[in-house]
Design a protein around this nucleic acid. Structure first.
Lengths: 233, 233
DNA sequence: CGGATCGTTGACAGGTATCAATGCTGGTGG
DNA sequence: CCACCAGCATTGATACCTGTCAACGATCCG
C-alpha cells in the first residue's frame, strides 16, 4: 500500500517539526532528547484519510507505525461467518501498529471511521531509536498498558449485559470528556460490530434512545443527554 | 497481603536458581546476562496457591510481580450489579502484575482457579534491573503483545455469537495444545463470567455437550472430543 | 446426619436474531 | 434540474435463545 495519493509532502523539515509538534507531549516522542531526533532519518509524513479508507490490513508487512492526530479508527477481526467485530477504537494519541517492534506483520485490520489525520512514522526510525536509545521505552509501555485497560473496558462494558446498557456505555465512551458536544456516531453496522449485536438491534435502540430524548442525531453525529441516559446505564 | 502462610523458604540460593530454572526461557529473565543477576537483591520466592486464593486485589500497592509456573489464574473485574466478568486467564509463562513498571497499584483482581505455583518477584528487583539494563525490554514487550492478542481473542471468541459456539471456543482454548488430555474445567459460575452468560445457561450447555459426547467430565476436569465439538464451533 | 455449596433441570418471560418490507438520503447520469 | 439507484436506517412479525425464578439432586465437610 503506497501512500502516493496522500498528503505526502514530507521532508527534512517535517521531521524537525516533530520537536515542536503540538502532539509531541502525547506522542511516542515525548521523551526524545535533541540528539535522538538525529536518528529519525526517514521522513515522517502526516497523512489524511477519509472514512472507510484502509490504513493497513492484517498480515501486511509493517512499514509504518501511526500516531492518531485526529479522527477515529477501528481495528477489526473478521469472524468465520464473514462478519466482523471491532476490537479496538483508536483516537487522538493512540498508536496503530504498535506491534511493529515485535513483529514483521500487522496483527489487525485497521480502518478509518471518521476522517483522520495521522503521523506516519517509518518503522526504520523506530527501530533505530529503539537500538540506540531508551527514549521509547516508557511511552511504549504506557501505550501497551492503555491497550490492556481499553481491552478490559471492552470486555466488561461493551460485551456484557443487555444491549441497551451496552449501547449507553458506548455512547458515553464515544462522547468522551465533553459529553455536551456532538460526537461521531458510527454506522449501525459498526455499532453492531462494537457491541456484538445485529444492526437491526442497534438501530432499534438508537431509535428508542432518540424517542426518549437521551440522544440527538445530526447526520453521522450525535449528542447525548447524560442524565436521561443514566436509566439504561 | 503478607505471604507468611506460603512456601516462603526463599533465600540467596533461590535467586541464583533463576539462572538454571526450567522456566527461565519463558520467563521475564530469558535475556538476563550473568551480571544482571547481581541486581536481583531481594529473594525470589516460589509460592503455591490453592484454588480460590487471592493473589492480589485491584488498587492494592504493588510489591511483587508474578510469573505463572503452573496452574490457572483469573483476572476479574466486578460489575455494577455485584457480578463479575473474567477478563483474562493466566497460564504457564504468563505474568501477573505486569503493570508494576508503570503503576503503584494493581489494576485487576487476580485469583487462583486451579492450584498454582508462581515465582514471586519483588518489584524492587524489576525496577533495579529496568534502570540498569535493557534485558527486560524485549520480554516485557512480548508479554504486552500477548495480552493484546489474548484480549482480541476474548472479544471475538468469547463474547460474540451463540453461547454454544462461545462455549466450544472456550473449551478448545482451555484444552490448549494437547486436546486429548483432561484439562481444568472452571465452575459453572466462572464459565459464565468468562463467556458473559448465566451459570444456568453454562450448566445447560455443558450438560448438552456431555449428552452429545463432545465432552467428558471427571470432577473439575474435562476432555473434549474435538471432531464432535466442531458442529458448534 | 444435617447443612452448605454447586450443578442440574423445568417453566416461563423477555430480549435478540432473523427475515422481510419500506423509508430515507446522497450521489450519478441523463 | 430531476429521476433513479444504491446503500443505509427503520420498522414489523416471528422464532429462537437466554435470563429469571424456582425446585431438586449431588457432593463435600463438619
Amino acid at each position: 500500500m503506497k501512500p502516493n495519493k496522500y498528503n505526502n509532502q514530507a521532508n527534512k523539515e517535517a521531521v524537525n517539526h516533530c520537536q515542536q509538534c503540538l502532539m509531541r507531549p502525547i506522542s511516542l516522542f515525548s521523551d526524545l532528547q535533541e540528539s535522538d531526533f538525529d536518528l529519525l532519518r526517514q521522513p515522517i509524513n502526516i497523512i489524511e484519510l477519509e472514512a472507510e479508507e484502509i490504513l493497513y490490513k492484517e498480515k501486511q508487512v509493517i512499514r509504518y507505525l501511526y500516531t492518531v492526530r485526529s479522527g477515529l479508527l477501528k481495528q477489526v477481526r473478521y469472524l468465520d461467518d464473514g462478519s466482523y467485530r471491532i476490537v479496538r477504537l483508536l483516537r487522538q494519541g493512540d498508536i496503530a501498529g504498535i506491534e511493529a517492534l515485535n513483529n514483521t506483520f500487522y496483527k489487525q485490520h485497521t480502518l478509518v471511521l471518521q476522517k483522520a489525520s495521522l503521523c506516519q512514522i517509518p518503522i526504520k526510525n523506530i527501530k533505530a531509536l529503539d537500538q540506540k536509545s531508551t527514549c521509547l521505552y516508557k511511552p511504549l509501555m504506557a501505550r501497551w498498558q492503555k491497550i490492556q485497560q481499553d481491552a478490559d473496558l471492552w470486555i466488561t462494558e461493551f460485551s456484557v449485559g443487555h444491549s441497551k446498557k451496552r449501547m449507553a456505555n458506548l455512547l458515553i465512551y464515544l462522547a468522551g470528556e465533553n459529553d455536551t458536544d456532538f460526537f461521531f456516531l458510527p454506522s449501525r453496522e459498526d455499532i453492531g460490530a462494537l457491541l456484538a449485536i445485529r444492526t437491526e438491534t442497534a438501530s432499534r435502540i438508537i431509535a428508542e434512545f432518540k424517542r426518549q430524548g437521551c440522544l440527538q442525531t445530526k447526520g453521522n453525529y450525535a449528542k447525548i443527554n447524560f442524565s436521561k441516559l443514566k436509566q439504561f446505564y
